[in-house]
Design a protein around this nucleic acid. Structure first.
Length: 858
RNA sequence: GUGGGUGUGGCGGAAUGGUAGACGCACCGGACUUAAAAUCCGUUGGGACAUAGUCCUGUGGGGGUUCGAGUCCCCCCACCCGCACCA
């Protein structure tokens, strides 16, 4: 065996070894209700959908979380770091249809495979807490929660329209509707009304909005996205009496945020789906045609036609309650039925869209807002939608827009023509899905008693195994016996609900279940009281709105029903960037996998054929573009530590990272270099810590302790790429400082040991390997405390100070730290004497230990 | 359209208002080797000149505040993301 072979780190042997050691020592196991007095820390990454294989996004996500978990553990926290599976969803049903596989078998096989891949990465997870949302033990508890929500008045049943595929006889999610057609059948999608279950998330709209302010460790942009989604607005409802009643309707109610501009009215517009529009259409073919046109325009050519504002004059008129004037009623394509009241009053001078509409149909444009009373402009094509002063508006004239709003609302309320209201964009959460592979909704429908809760002793309502995917539609509907049950109320024959829950429900409380995953109740209060909220949640930005909002709502609902004791589930949130890769095509435009491509200085060619390759954009890894790299292959070739180190090293975690082969090789080289260095240092003479250090040894020790401080700081701020850079620097310095004085030997040993401990959260396996060589009796590095920097060694004894003249660097001086200003200035002046010659010094700036700046004049 | 974000060498990026480019990748040069791989050492923002050195310039563009700006303020440009007719 040659030298190089003995000093080569064999990850394929070491990684499984240390993983077994951690498991044997139970390093990562947490208790539901801990007894010790260590502070708790709950680290959670968004759990994966078991598609079958892990991808690089998972590697990055779980590495980030694992670094936090291991770091916090070393800092003395009692860490909860669990893993599970978001296992319900459409892909399993698709697999069932395509491969005649049983969705459960397919899902559990995928889980088994992915569990193995995750374990190879060496994540410090408490696998004893693992569960899948498709386990009856989990979704049965979810059914209990639903029934508690129902009892608490948080559940409603009402009609809602769905996308219906008439060929597949199935309901489609919005993403499955492509250009108005079903993605699978290609049939034109119909709107169909179904009775559905809703969770009343709107009841919580105010607190979900206000709660955002308490989330100090959330990214600002995620909070903003949630804020916009919840969409709070303050305004007024105004009742406009119709000049003549239509189909029994005597007035139109409008929602506005600008009641101050009511005197600037020019027209009233209603949505094509508005009841009055429908009533008009029954007698007016033109109106009916216009409405039909608007409906068909809906999804298809939205992009092209959005800018075009179109309307249809109904001939009806309404009376403005403030001035008694009559205004025409239009049906307009830009008014939305599901926002506000489905009707607006048009004030062209204060709203760009209303102005566009008024100009198009030659409607009057009264001016009611002006920059000031003396400066009333002409309105051209640009509306005055900012703040200003109200003019030409009766009792509101002369008030600022801010003053006029409450004044207008007060008047509306006084004359009974309207009231101030708060409006929300957020709508209730429809949770019924006409699917098999989801959590059954625990309800029984009885013709006499109505919908009844499934009694507790009959939970969980389990999915039947013997279903057929041969016929289109929901297999639960076709099952011969499953839905046939007796009513729990009257005992007569009844029907079991065949809808299942939206899978977003499964992921809205799993973090609470992880605290006591085997409990007979959804949660155990002592456990959730201890562990919640999650201290650090890590996941993709793509879940910034729906998942995070649903989880926040669910937590509040769970708190209301006594299942948890917190209102917010995630105290800290980190959103990571995507993993990207170059994409490749052959000359025929077919995508190629990276492993099919060889790159050289001359360009890229195909490995097998030598044919040219077109190198495309750097894009998010996706199967369709074939620009994926299989983590399994990387781990097999370079080891888990290399993969972990690479995804941490290249750039800040919140940004996208580009996966490059050369970057991975760089990471691999470092693993080997670190190992060789540690081996070398471990073989050197052991010495006690010297009483004093000087010279090179002192410099190295200072660098070591500065590195501790810098890496600690980087860990706290998710600046893992900076931590990596600092560790490169430290190992470089240790290997550069050769010699065999006691001082230096100690400094080298200390540097190597600290490097092992600082590197451990990021590359746990090689850290164990080298720590074991350096400190054979100290046990696992995974349970070592985090190193502390010696404050004495953080103090620099010499500093290099920049010397500027008029703010430009002209030289540097090296002086003892804390040197008095007079001496520093003397030395500085000397070093830039040639530049100062012939100049008059006007001012001398001295920032201790940092900089000297001479301000001079000729 | 609107809200948010980003813009620094060939690339990823670093930099409490204080020496811009840490660290890595790539490239180039050297050492070791019969050779290659691996490893180690070194150079590398751009430009000019009298080339062991000196100077100029440089963080998307333009202004400003400051002794001093990548960093703070104002305007503009480009790109990315979210929501998109929200009354």
């Amino acid at each position: 065996m040659s030298d190089t072979e003995t000093t080569r780190y064999d990850f394929s042997q070491a990684e499984p070894h240390w993983q077994a050691q951690w498991e044997a020592a139970g390093c990562f196991v947490a208790l539901d209700v801990p007894t010790g007095d260590r502070p708790k820390y709950y680290v959670l990454e968004m759990f994966p959908y078991p598609s079958g294989k892990i991808h690089m996004g998972h590697v990055r996500n779980y590495t980030l979380g694992d670094v936090v978990a291991r770091y916090k553990r070393a800092q003395g926290f009692d860490v909860l770091h669990p893993m599970g599976w978001d296992a319900f969803g459409l892909p399993a049903e698709n697999a069932a249809r395509e491969n005649k596989a049983d969705p459960a078998d397919w899902t559990y096989a995928n889980i088994a495979n992915m569990r193995g891949e995750l374990k190879r990465m060496g994540f410090s997870l408490d696998w004893a807490r693992e569960f899948a949302t498709c386990d009856p033990e989990y979704y049965g508890q979810q059914q209990k929660i639903f029934l508690d929500f129902w009892q608490a008045g948080l559940v409603e049943r009402r009609a809602a329209s769905v996308n219906w595929d008439p060929v597949d006889m199935t309901v489609l999610a919005n993403e499955q509707v492509i250009d108005g057609r079903g993605w699978r059948s290609g049939a034109l999608v119909e709107k169909k009304k179904l009775s559905q279950w809703f969770l009343k998330i709107t009841d919580f709209a105010p607190e979900l909005l206000e709660g955002l302010d308490t989330l100090e460790r959330w990214p600002e942009r995620v909070k903003l996205m949630q804020e916009n989604w919840i969409g709070y607005s303050q305004g007024a409802e105004v009742i406009f009496p119709l000049a003549e009643a239509v189909a029994g309707l005597e007035s139109v109610t409008v929602y506005t945020t600008r009641p101050d501009t009511l005197f600037g009215m020019s027209f009233l517009a209603i949505a094509p789906e508005h009841p009055i529009a429908k009533a008009v259409a029954e007698q007016n073919a033109g109106a009916a045609g216009f409405i039909a046109e608007c409906a068909s325009q809906g999804t298809s050519e939205a992009a092209i036609e959005t800018a075009e504002k179109r309307g249809f004059a109904t001939g009806l008129e309404v009376v403005n309650p403030f001035n008694g004037v009559k205004y025409p009623v239009w049906i307009a394509n830009f008014v939305l039925m599901d926002y506000g009241t489905g009707a607006i009053f048009g004030c062209p001078c204060g709203d760009q869209r209303d102005l566009d509409f008024a100009r198009k149909y030659a409607l009057p444009v009264p001016v009611v807002v002006a920059p000031s009373v003396d400066d009333v402009p002409e309105i051209g094509v640009k509306a005055l939608d900012g703040d200003g002063v109200i003019v030409n508006s009766g009792f509101l004239s002369g008030l600022t827009t801010a003053e006029a709003k409450p004044a207008a609302i007060a008047e509306l309320e006084k004359i009974g023509a309207g009231k101030g209201v708060t409006n929300w964009r957020l709508r209730d959460w429809g949770i019924s899905r006409q699917r098999y592979w989801g959590c059954p909704i625990p309800v029984i429908h009885c013709d006499d008693c109505g919908p009844q809760a499934v009694p507790q002793d009959q939970l969980p309502v389990e999915l039947p195994k013997d279903v057929s995917f041969e016929t289109p539609g929901n297999p639960l509907d076709h099952h011969p016996t499953w839905s046939k049950v007796n009513c729990p109320g009257c005992g007569r024959p009844a029907r079991r609900e065949t809808d299942t829950f939206d899978t977003f429900i499964d992921s809205s409380w799993y973090f609470a279940r992880f605290c006591s995953p085997r409990a007979e109740s959804p949660t155990v209060l002592d456990a959730v009281k201890h562990w919640l909220p999650v201290d650090q949640y890590v996941g993709g930005i793509e879940h910034a709105i729906l998942h995070l909002l649903y989880a926040r709502f669910f937590t509040r609902a769970l708190e209301k029903t006594g299942h948890v004791t917190v209102k917010e589930p995630f105290a800290g949130l980190f959103t990571q960037g995507m993993v990207t890769h170059e994409s490749y095509k052959d000359e025929g435009g077919n995508w190629l996998y990276p492993e099919q491509v060889v790159k050289s200085a001359e360009g890229a060619t195909q490995r097998d054929t030598g044919l040219p390759v077109v190198v495309g954009r750097i894009e998010k890894m996706s199967k369709s573009k074939r620009n994926t790299v299989d983590p399994g292959a990387i781990v097999g070739k370079y080891g888990a530590d290399t993969a972990r180190w690479f995804v941490l090293s290249d750039n800040p975690p919140e940004r996208d990272v580009e996966w490059t082969e050369s970057g991975v090789q760089g990471a691999y080289r470092f693993v080997q270099r670190l190992y060789r260095l540690a081996l070398l240092v471990a073989g050197e003479r052991r010495v006690e810590q010297p009483v004093a250090v000087s010279g090179e040894a002192k410099k190295l020790r200072q660098l070591t302790h500065r590195t501790i401080a810098a890496v600690t700081e980087a860990m706290e701020t998710f600046a893992f790429n900076v931590a990596v850079a600092k560790l490169y620097e430290l190992t470089g310095a240790v290997s550069g400082a050769a010699g065999d004085t006691d001082e230096l030997l100690f400094a080298r040993f200390e540097g190597a040991e600290i490097a092992a401990r600082l590197v451990a959260p990021m590359m746990p396996h090689v850290a164990e390997e080298i720590f074991a060589r350096l400190r054979p009796d100290a046990g696992l590095v995974a349970v070592q405390p985090w190193p502390k920097a010696d404050p004495v060694l953080l103090v620099q004894d010499e500093v290099t100070i920049a010397v500027q003249v008029n703010g430009k660097l002209r030289g540097t001086i090296t002086v003892p730290a804390g040197q008095a200003a007079g001496l520093v200035l003397l030395a500085a002046e000397a070093v830039v004497a040639s530049v100062l010659a012939g100049q008059t010094i006007v001012k001398k700036i001295h920032v201790p230990d940092r900089i000297v700046n001479f301000v001079v004049k000729p």
